[in-house]
């Protein structure tokens, strides 16, 4: 199987290039991560992040034949040859397939992604009905892989100002939590032309999310809440 893989090592390369690789032994059911590990055994200078191998840790996001995805849950038999592997678009490249995610994390931090309560804590759990808890499904499962935000044109344009789909999904995860008591400050933080309303419902985020989550929908919920709250 033939691969074209983005290579760039600032230590030795003047500029990026695409390197051809051939994977000799294609195993049945093989995922792209295993293929990349085999290719790295051919050439140990190939760098990429990966860890759990089952789509839970979110390390091995990359651009696969033009679409962002996780290598470890992408079966290579579904890919057309030569398979083009590039780093996430729109973010600084550190080396080969490794990108600098610090801007992405900074935006995540900016939405206060933690439960805020002002009441004194009870000795036992806060009660939450199964129906209230169901509202967190499709939100809390985010693995922060970055596939969504790095496929979002609004995030490409304004990575320092626009929180991006991953961060906004988390914002809604806490707004939707019956236990959270910081709705006003969360909404205040998202007001303005470069925050919530920079989302133009292009929906690349929902299209690429490897966990099947829908940030655009979450952003829609926040917009509705903000509108309701302001009248």
């Amino acid at each position: 199987m033939r691969f074209k893989i983005h290579r760039y090592n600032p230590d030795v390369d003047e500029k990026p290039y695409m390197q051809d690789f051939v994977l000799e032994h294609v195993k049945p059911g093989m995922m792209l991560r295993e293929a990349l590990i085999d290719l790295k055994n051919q050439d140990e200078t190939l760098s990429f992040r990966h860890s759990c191998g089952e789509g839970v840790c979110g390390s091995d996001g990359m651009n696969i034949n033009g679409l962002n995805g996780l290598a470890c849950i992408t079966p290579i038999e579904t890919l057309t040859e030569p398979v083009e592997i590039r780093p996430f678009p729109g973010v600084p490249i550190i080396r080969d397939l490794v990108v600098d995610m610090s801007g992405f994390y900074k935006q995540y931090h900016s939405v206060k992604p933690f439960l805020i309560r002002y009441d004194p804590e009870p000795e036992v759990e806060n009660l939450q009905s199964p129906e209230e808890r169901d509202k967190l499904d499709g939100l809390y499962e985010c693995i922060l892989c970055g596939c969504c935000s790095t496929s979002c044109p609004s995030f490409w344009w304004n990575p320092d100002k626009f929180p991006g789909p991953a961060a906004l999904l988390q914002s809604w995860r806490f707004l939707a939590d019956s236990r959270d008591q910081a709705m006003e400050e969360r909404l205040d933080g998202l007001d303005g032309p470069y925050k919530l309303f920079r989302c133009h419902t292009i929906m690349n985020c929902a299209y690429v999310c490897p966990k099947g989550l829908n940030p655009t929908k979450a952003i829609g919920h926040i917009k509705a809440l903000m509108l309701k709250h302001s009248v």
């Binding site: 309560r117 036992v124 199964p130």
Partner: peptide, 20 residues
């Protein structure tokens, strides 16, 4: 410690009683 985690925000599944 589990109650503390719940207070910190862990989205535990819930029983009909609202408990963890």
């Amino acid at each position: 410690l589990v109650y503390e985690l719940e207070h910190a925000g862990v989205p535990f599944s819930r029983l009909d009683s609202g408990k963890i």
